[in-house]
């Protein structure tokens, strides 16, 4: 019965719990990285923030290298400058993070895109790289 008093955690002690948390996060990292590098067949590249598609630089079937621009987006950039929120509209281009092949281009210039919602470009990447 005296064990009961220490059983806030499911582990033997809080030290064990700390170690378990470290192992758990390491596991998550390994799983996510392996999944992205080797398992996932294709990746839909989504807009990192809300904006309007300006241009798409790649065509379906094209081979791209890491660092090649994929598309550009007109976004509202918010930045604190001298304690004032400065908002300006800018066109930013986004690049490929891994070598691969473009499978499909689903967006077209002029489309309004929402952050993390629809894929603009679907890419197949080289195994072992992180898209």
């Amino acid at each position: 019965m005296s064990d009961k008093k220490k059983s806030l955690t499911v582990f033997r002690s809080d030290r064990h719990e700390d170690v378990a948390a470290i192992i758990a996060s390491a596991l998550i990292v390994v799983v996510v990285l392996t999944y992205m590098a080797f398992i996932v067949p294709s990746v839909g590249i989504k807009a990192p923030q809300d904006g309007k598609l300006v241009e798409i630089f790649v065509a379906e079937g094209a081979e791209v290298k890491k660092g090649d621009p994929l598309y550009s987006l007109e976004v509202v950039k918010k930045k604190w400058v001298n304690n004032v929120m400065e908002e300006k509209v800018a066109v930013e281009s986004f690049t490929a993070k891994a070598n691969g092949k473009v499978l499909k281009v689903s967006g077209k210039p002029g489309d309004a895109v929402k952050k993390g919602k629809q894929a603009i470009v679907v890419m197949e990447h080289e195994k072992g790289t992180l898209p």
């Binding site: 990292v29 996510v32 990285l33 992205m36 590098a37 590249i45 989504k46 993070k97 992180l130 898209p131």
Partner: peptide, 8 residues
């Protein structure tokens, strides 16, 4: 862990 802005 992957580049900033990557899907990973």
């Amino acid at each position: 862990l992957g580049a900033e802005g990557s899907e990973t």
